[in-house]
């Protein structure tokens, strides 16, 4: 597919386990009490399958300090703001919250901290209000991103098998294996007919010597031509590293026995990014609810959490 298209990103759809809500209720009662300070949590995602939407998952382990995403999944750090009342949930300064996170992301790009830990590029915020008596849960995610002055452009979109030879694809697969669970982003170094795969942390060294490189990312997108959200904030980092036109590998695990390599290589022209005294131009991207409205999500777990009701329905 050729053509000058604005690079499109698939918005996240959050999915929280009911066990997480149980754990949040427990922490609220025993530890947070009335404290509304931000609590660090983790979410995680996997790579996309055609037709099967990829969600951003939050599970029981989200509060763990040593959070580890399951195999073939990648973690995203976030902060949870649990409010004590529905009023404080409504009046919380959401714009300021997402801007603070954008600023942190920008600082991590500027300082190079994000090269060492690229998962920092995908910081998110979630605000919650839990009504523990009714088992009602209100929540709203923001996925801030740094915005370029001109949109990033997709110049070309090719199958991986059109970009690499069969032998190169095999080398790529072998090279990916040791880092596949650790790194949401990686670098392919192409020299002649050989391909080596490196953790993203080595980007600066490779960039200075490589003739040709491809930046790879674990892509949760599941629609043709639409990339997963995690790439969005990698682009300003790549631009900061001096890359303007860059090949991006959208990597997806193929279903077993599938002959198709679903992974594609996009040639992307990255726009320029600007900041005002360290404050970047950014988007908050508050998640839309199931009706497509810009409103919080709501979950009523009274029929599963309320032990009295549960006992009655289980007669």
């Amino acid at each position: 597919m050729e053509g000058k298209n604005i690079l499109q990103f698939q918005s996240w759809v959050s999915s929280i386990d009911s066990a997480f809500w149980y754990e949040l209720g427990r922490l609220k009662l025993n530890e947070f009490k009335l404290d509304q300070s931000a609590v660090p949590i983790h979410a995680y995602y996997g790579t996309g399958y055609p037709g099967v939407p990829t969600h951003l998952f939050v599970n029981l382990d989200a509060f763990k300090k040593d959070f580890k995403a399951p195999s073939y999944h990648y973690k995203m750090p976030g902060e949870l703001h649990n409010t004590n009342t529905i009023e404080s949930f409504k009046t919380l300064d959401k714009k300021k919250l997402s801007e603070t996170i954008s600023k942190q992301i920008w600082e991590d790009i500027e300082s190079g901290k994000a090269i060492k830990d690229p998962s920092l590029l995908n910081r998110f915020a979630v605000i919650t209000y839990v009504d523990l008596k009714k088992y009602h849960y209100y929540y709203w995610f923001s996925f801030p991103s740094i915005q370029s002055e001109e949109p990033c452009i997709s110049l070309k979109n090719e199958l991986l098998s059109d970009v690499l030879s069969q032998s190169q694809i095999q080398q790529f697969k072998n090279g990916l294996e040791p880092i596949r669970d650790k790194e949401p982003f990686f670098v392919l170094n192409l020299t002649g007919d050989s391909v080596s795969v490196h953790p993203f942390q080595e980007i600066e060294t490779i960039k200075s010597t490589a003739k040709e490189l491809i930046i790879g990312f674990m892509d949760p997108g599941y629609q043709d031509g639409i990339l997963g959200w995690p790439l969005r904030n990698l682009l300003p980092l790549l631009r900061k590293l001096g890359l303007k036109i860059v090949k991006i590998l959208s990597f997806k695990y193929p279903p077993e026995n599938s002959k198709d390599i679903l992974s594609r290589v996009f040639t992307v022209e990255i726009g320029d990014y600007k900041s005002n005294n360290g404050v970047p131009v950014s988007l908050a991207s508050w998640e839309k609810n199931h009706k497509g409205e810009l409103k919080p999500k709501f979950l009523n777990l009274s029929n599963t959490m309320d032990h009295k009701q549960l006992a009655e329905s289980a007669v």
């Binding site: 959401k94 209100y138 908050a284 810009l294």
Partner: peptide, 24 residues
């Protein structure tokens, strides 16, 4: 959503984002 009837979309959260695909 209980207690959310009056939860109007906050104007300052509406964004124009041509790069976001919300098609689900």
């Amino acid at each position: 959503i209980p207690d959310m009837e009056e939860f109007d979309v906050e104007d300052n959260l509406v964004e124009n984002d041509p790069a976001a695909s919300n098609t689900v």
